[in-house]
Computed example of a mutant assay.
Amino acid sequence: MGCLCRKHFPGLVDLKEGRWEPAWSWDRYKLGSDDEQDNKQERVLADFWRYFKAEEGRETLADQTAHRACKKYVGDMIHEARLQAHVDYYRSIKKEPLNKTGARNVALTKEQYLQVPASWCMSHRSAWSRIVDRYLDPAYIAKHEQGKRKRALRTAPTHHQGSRNLPAFKRALEVAHPDMPVSEFGAWAVSHMGPMKSGQRLHGGG
């Protein structure tokens, strides 16, 4: 689903009265036009449900979970694009190695950011420029630094999935709860909503 959010990123969207801003939230995907659906939000969901089927009687819950997932994915992709730009700039422009950990301590200028747009923003350079403006806003930087300090104080993972990727977390759930069918969609829900309870069913695919 995260891939679909990136694939169908709307770029700049019209907030009415001549205000055009990047779609840096899931809600703003509703404002992006699409050639197959009414808007980009519907396009992402339509493409997703081509490959997955909600359990009968749980369609509403599945739809709500999909929206929650997309909300997180869009926020994450905007945030992660900043770190990826740091890595890309050092590797492709400066020809120096840089990993994600080191990227957290790097600062770029606007001109440098513009040389390494996010892959999903290649055809939306105006939107990327505006996103970069947000990265460089003092309020955003202050919030980012506060988040770093909070993360440094944590002694446990921020969610049940920890550092494992989703397929690995799904396998771990299946081993720990062999009587509870789990789809990847359901595993994502568990990782963000809490531990599984006895007898719980988490189907997301069909």
Rank of each mutant, 00 (worst) to 15 (best):
P138T: 08
A46D: 15
L108K: 04
E55W: 08
R130I: 04
Q41H: 11
A139M: 03
R134Y: 13
H144Q: 12
Q112P: 13
H144D: 12
E96M: 04
N99S: 05
Q115H: 02
R50G: 15
A107W: 14
R43P: 13
H86G: 11
Q64D: 14
P138V: 06
N99V: 04
R58K: 09
Y135W: 03
S123H: 14
A118W: 05
A118V: 06
K71S: 13
V106S: 14
F48I: 00
D76P: 02
W120S: 04
S129A: 13
L114Q: 08
K95Q: 03
E80L: 09
Y135F: 08
A54F: 09
T60D: 06
L98W: 02
N105R: 12
K95I: 00
K71N: 13
C121G: 04
R104N: 07
F48A: 01
P117V: 13
D88V: 11
A127K: 00
A66P: 05
E59M: 03
K53F: 10
A69F: 09
Q112H: 09
R125W: 00
H67S: 07
I141F: 06
T65E: 05
R125L: 01
E111I: 09
I93K: 11
R130T: 05
I78S: 08
R134G: 13
T60H: 07
C70H: 01
M77H: 01
W120N: 05
G102K: 01
A54W: 07
Y90P: 01
C121F: 05
E111L: 10
A107N: 15
W128R: 02
A107Y: 15
E59C: 02
E42C: 04
D47T: 15
R134F: 13
Q115G: 02
P117L: 11
Y51E: 10
R91S: 14
K53V: 14
N99R: 05
S126P: 01
F52S: 12
E59D: 00
A62M: 00
V74I: 07
K53N: 11
K71L: 13
A69T: 05
Y51F: 12
S123V: 15
S129Y: 04
G57E: 03
R104F: 07
T60K: 08
P97V: 04
K71T: 12
I93F: 05
V87R: 11
G75A: 10
L136I: 07
L114K: 08
T109G: 11
L136P: 10
D47C: 15
Y113H: 10
R130K: 07
T60N: 06
R125H: 00
R43W: 08
L136R: 09
Q64T: 15
W49Q: 08
P117H: 13
Y90N: 03
D133V: 12
Y89H: 07
Y90T: 00
C121N: 02
S119Y: 05
H86I: 14
A62P: 01
R43A: 14
K72L: 13
N105Y: 14
Y140L: 11
E80I: 04
K100P: 10
